[in-house]
Amino acid sequence: MEFDKPVAGGPCWTELGTSDLEGAKRFYAELFGWRPETDPRPEAGGYTVAHLGDAPVAALTPLYRDTQPVAWNVSFAVPDADAAGRRVEEAGGTVLVGAMDVFDIGRFAVALDPTGAAFQLWQARTFPGAGLFNAPGALGWVELATRDTDRARDFYTTVFGWSADVSEWYTEWAVDGARFGGLADMGDRFPPEVPAHWMPYFAVADVDTTAEVADRVGGAVVLAPVTVPDGPRIAVLRDPQGAAFGVHLAGTEA
């Protein structure tokens, strides 16, 4: 990402909904060196914040609904979650969970874009989001995979005011000129039952080694390490509970 702290309209946080919270804690601690801290309050529902040093970088949570998939989710910073939810609906999306307060730290909502990809809106109060981007083990890029790229571009540029730099095979998103993510056509690379989705990419010091570690500690390699033409070295991995995420070489975020 071409910014190092949360900015309005940009990705500010990512969290994993998992069927095995303790197993996920162990896996990501081995993979990224995360230090997980679970909120002890019963009303927090097991919400766990992962840290690198003192910086919060991601969250791990139990599944809160029977229909919730094991998956990583991406949150985007907005000044007003209620107003952003209205823009989502006006642009053809759906608000799944209306804006609500999270203790005193912020206000959030959950939405679907018109192509079926879920994402979250975050209105910060005392918690702005990730305290570190682009460093090894921290969020460095986000990517939307969908089967209707034209509709997705129209939706997100309308809701968030993003710009979209479109090439033959990929679209790069930017907010106020700072690139932070991409848009990929799912085409026939995914089984038809896989829905459109947002996926986080975490920066790592060595993509190949990270893929080897993931495989060794119970995960799987979905896309073997590869160097993108005119781009970074990346891999797509899956944790032991089935959640997919990407990794890329730190220092090549844009």
Rank of each mutant, 00 (worst) to 15 (best):
A83N: 05
L63A: 01
D39T: 07
W72N: 04
A91Y: 12
V102K: 06
E37I: 00
V78C: 08
G106W: 01
F103P: 05
Y47P: 00
V97F: 13
P62Q: 05
G93N: 05
L52Q: 06
T48P: 02
A71H: 14
G85D: 04
T61M: 12
D66E: 12
L112H: 15
P79A: 06
D39A: 09
T38Y: 01
G45K: 13
F76R: 02
A50Y: 00
W72Q: 07
D82V: 11
R41I: 09
S75K: 09
E43R: 11
V97A: 15
M100F: 15
G46S: 11
D82K: 14
R35Y: 05
W34M: 01
Q68R: 10
L60C: 07
G98M: 08
T94H: 08
A84H: 09
Y47E: 00
R86Q: 14
V70L: 07
G93L: 09
L52D: 02
D39C: 03
P42K: 06
F76L: 14
T61G: 10
R86Y: 09
Q68C: 09
A44S: 14
A84N: 05
L63T: 06
H51Y: 08
L60Q: 02
A44V: 07
T61W: 00
S75C: 13
L52E: 01
V102H: 09
L60F: 12
V110Q: 15
D54S: 14
G93H: 04
W34A: 01
D54T: 13
L60H: 06
L96P: 04
E43S: 14
A109I: 12
V97G: 10
P42A: 08
V95K: 12
Y47T: 00
G106E: 03
P69T: 10
T67S: 13
E43V: 15
E37Y: 02
G33H: 10
A81I: 07
E37Q: 03
A81M: 08
H51S: 00
A111G: 14
A44Q: 04
P40H: 10
L63Q: 09
